[in-house]
Computed example of a mutant assay.
Amino acid sequence: MSSKKLRLSVLDQSPIRKGATAIQAVQETIQLAKFTEQLGYTRFWVAEHHNTGILAGSSPDVLLAHLAAHTSTIRLGSGGVMLPNHSALKVAESFRMLEALAPGRIDLGMGRAPGTDRVTASILNPSNQFREQDFVEQLADLQNYFHDTADPGTIHRSIRAIPQVDTVPAMWLLSSSGQSGLFAAHFGMGFSFAHFINPVGGPQAVKLYRDRFQPSDDLTEPEANMAIFLFCSEDPEKVVQFKAVMDARFLQFEKGVITPLSYNDVKDVVYTEAEQDRIRYNRQRVVAGSPTMVKERLNVLAENYDIDEIMVVTICEDFDDRLRSYGLLAELFELEKLS
């Protein structure tokens, strides 16, 4: 890995800052996509979450269509479409339409988790049984829809995903465990490990994916990346405040409470020993510090994972600080700006 230049990409969840609105959050996603394209980031993925007051991104395909109209070079994708919430045909048609809008620039990143609680997931898709085999069958159906290769002996034989286009979105499986990496290897898809969700076992999952990879019509060699929460700043106090808010946000989420937080909300909180243990664990999900520290840490992670691409998730109180963090990263890794 050390001989390769590290590529950087963005995973954006359209976070709703305290005191801001969902409309502002979506507008910030659009601004961030245009900004990071100019800086030379490789891809920009948007997430799918439901029934939450802190993340506005519920419909990746709709948002991606808008982003496609406001960008020209950066790859756009889902990080991810939560496949059990949808029919395979509907996903295939949505992403074929995106390919028609931005040929050769679309990534279909998919996850097994619902991106919400079980009750909401059951309402999104009342037929969802949360079975692994259903997920595997959806992956096979998707490949067939994209390539018009349905088995003549199945119910899918006369069904085509519309519109019919010449290009196929790059398919990726997203996971915070090794299981989906095995599915990605079997189907010949890309694999993205969510280190920002689970900081343990990622390098091993990526290695297993590479070892088991079977080439497909879409991908002849394994392609992997990892995603991590990150904040880069030249101001040590801003780093301290970012860490404090992230510490509280993780604990809040683990307790089933989800509300926007600011530094003023958490600066005087005293944590129990058990909470401090969780904070130490959760800080493995985050890289936050000065430019020098951040660059060193990302290079170590890239080497440990044996990858040449890292996806960055940045959520902070001030949108300008968020933009500045992505700008500093681009400078650190000498990304090639658009002319």
Rank of each mutant, 00 (worst) to 15 (best):
K267A: 02
Q241A: 14
Q241P: 10
E317I: 13
V257Q: 11
Q276M: 10
T272Y: 04
E317H: 03
S233E: 02
V270L: 15
C316M: 12
I315F: 01
E275S: 08
D277T: 12
E275P: 11
P215A: 14
V239K: 06
D277F: 06
V313G: 06
A244I: 03
R283H: 10
Y263A: 07
L332K: 12
F231H: 05
M293P: 00
E273C: 03
V313Q: 05
F319S: 13
S216W: 04
D318I: 15
M226D: 05
D265S: 09
D306P: 00
L323F: 15
V294D: 07
I279M: 01
N264L: 07
F242I: 00
E331N: 15
C232P: 10
L301F: 03
E303Q: 15
E254Y: 12
N282D: 08
R278M: 10
M226V: 15
S290D: 07
E237L: 12
A227C: 08
Q214P: 09
D277Y: 03
C316G: 14
C232A: 05
K238N: 11
F229W: 14
N225E: 11
Q241E: 15
E254I: 02
R285S: 11
T314W: 11
Q276N: 07
D217M: 11
P260V: 04
A244H: 07
F319H: 06
